[in-house]
Design a protein around this nucleic acid. Structure first.
Lengths: 148, 148
DNA sequence: TTGCGTGCAAAGGTTTTGCATGGCA
DNA sequence: TGCCATGCAAAACCTTTGCACGCAA
């Protein structure tokens, strides 16, 4: 369709470069704005949103939505679409950490869904929510404390 | 904690009854508002939000978040907490339909994640996104058409 | 009678849009 | 030169909150 993504500007280059040098960062539009400013490159908020939209369309960046009303988080999806599109993501609801899980079991799941349920899972948009090990332990510790 | 959910009012009764008579509906707060008005029961928007919050807390209703900026969707979760908390949900990104998939394969998945990856999946908050069969076919048809 | 529930309006937050200017090609 | 990108401000959007009044218990 459109191999051309438009003009190459200072702002877009900065945003792309930020993601490339922080491939595991997942941050909101505002946080990205701040990070860029910290790097000495001031970019308007609207520009950040517009650039993120384009990057999402191109598949370069992925957008995660937690709960409505909160900011969406963006993360680098790799130059090649394979980096984060061939495995599932686990997001801890407590600490917010995003875990990348390339696992055969999960591949089987999507195959199963495709064959048995006629549903094509979009790895790029799907995030499994739950609680990671460190946080579960921490929660248990807290709940024991409060049992006075 | 609180077996008592407060007063029983005309508005709350109407909302609960709506969900009970439309157990598979998943709609936004605004849509619920409109549906109630159509039934002859006018309920203020804030009241709907407040009631939905309570129902979510109680586990009677679940809240789905699609993408940031869009409205959250609410759906009846049944009187017993088990109805929708023991299986996964598939949401079609094209038509928006929510599919309930109680499937052994998916149970295995969560067991696997718990044992192998120390991650506790929250069924209530996790939705797998993708494309359902009818929509995939429709998309294929469209893309063939545009190949002039 | 007490105090929660309601509804309106206003505030809060994130994201989008309009428009004049600036920069890429 | 032409056109897209930028950035500011304002708008749009969903949701929450403040406050006076009404209704359940």
């Amino acid at each position: 369709m459109s191999a051309e993504n438009g003009y190459r500007t200072r702002q877009r280059a900065a945003i792309l470069q930020y993601f490339q040098s922080h491939p595991h960062a997942h941050l909101t539009a505002e946080e990205l704005c701040d990070a860029l400013r910290a790097d000495g490159i001031s970019v308007g908020k609207s520009t950040v949103y517009r650039a993120l939209d384009k990057l999402c369309e191109a598949g370069t960046v992925r957008r995660f939505t937690m709960s409505a009303g909160e900011s969406a988080c963006y993360q680098y999806a790799g130059g090649t679409k394979e980096t984060c599109c061939t495995h599932f993501h686990l997001k801890c609801l407590v600490c917010g950490t995003l875990y990348h899980i390339p696992c055969e079991h999960l591949d089987e799941l999507s195959t199963h869904l495709g064959i048995q349920h006629n549903f094509t899972v979009d790895y790029a948009k799907t995030v499994l929510y739950g609680t990671c090990d460190p946080c579960r332990r921490a929660l248990l510790a807290v709940s024991k404390k409060s049992e006075t």
